[in-house]
Design a protein around this nucleic acid. Sequence first.
DNA 1: CGCGATTACTTGTTCCGACAACCAATACGA
DNA 2: TCGTATTGGTTGTCGGAACAAGTAATCGCG
Lengths: 173, 173
Amino acid sequence: MTDDTRWLSTEESAAWVRLVALAELLPGALDAQLLRDAQITHFEYAALMALAAAPDRTMRMTALAARTNATLPRLSHVARRLEERGLIRRFPCPEDRRATNATITEAGMRLIDEAAPGHVDTVRRNVLDVLTPEQLHQLYDIAGAVLTRLDPDERLTATACQFSEGPAIARAG
Amino acid sequence: MTDDTRWLSTEESAAWVRLVALAELLPGALDAQLLRDAQITHFEYAALMALAAAPDRTMRMTALAARTNATLPRLSHVARRLEERGLIRRFPCPEDRRATNATITEAGMRLIDEAAPGHVDTVRRNVLDVLTPEQLHQLYDIAGAVLTRLDPDERLTATACQFSEGPAIARAG
DNA sequence: CGCGATTACTTGTTCCGACAACCAATACGA
DNA sequence: TCGTATTGGTTGTCGGAACAAGTAATCGCG
């Protein structure tokens, strides 16, 4: 049993440690701000944003699950809670009686409109504003390369206008 | 109530979407491989690696919690499970009778030695090998800049030799 | 038709993490 | 030296997510 593993060089190890730390800390930072200011998780925020940007503000549960990297059971529970809070509405899909459609309500649109400024501010302070324009482009390429592996069919990034935050969403209303 | 929010430009939005997708998918990919091949989570792997790289393979619970971005209660539960599996051992700290030390056992060392090749392979296939050497350095700088905000006192990246994987750890024995 | 396979969700169970309450030991002030 | 505050960890409880099983509707092929 020979060991043909290609171990990490110093540079590789250093970059990897930082990337792991980033992936570890970023979700918590996003959740903390949104929970504090809008009583929703970042996952729920992303789901609401996806619905807000969809045609008729409506998506199939399956499509929404793919977009948010959720399992269908997980999305089902989250959708039930969001529906209880009046932020989304669910109804049977006319074309396919097996399917369920989810629509963001006016209250849901108001919530993300109110939450967007604080969220964008968090994104700016923690990420975007500490990078140079050149680094921003490098990040785009680097993350794109990695996502080729982690998300080959671009489920999470097929964004239409997913993150044209705030005003664009308001226009979508 | 004027809206002075600086919304995201097209470039900013695109890069941000990709970064969020990356942070969303990476932890799951790491967990999946390690759970499948070594029956441990990536968090547990990181904790064991930290212990393996520490002097005397031993750390205070508080220090280990800081290093792994865990709350003390969370680490306490994880440590109990690892101890039940014989991968670590806990004992009172001699210098401070309030404190508890955790040490990785021989069985724990064996487990991370066996898990390291598969883990490194996953890291290579999903991340390192899809980047150019130049991009690797850019990633180092970009993540470093963001971590200045998310982890100002470098708790997660004060790595001594945290990720000199495999052989280096074997030497630490 | 009609029966098996597939797709779309929901529900139930189990495990894990966060928060809070708690216990133990030290530090410090009166 | 006594009492209080602080630090270090563990335990209990609750909510959330994954996995698996169950239901319902459509598809596909004979």
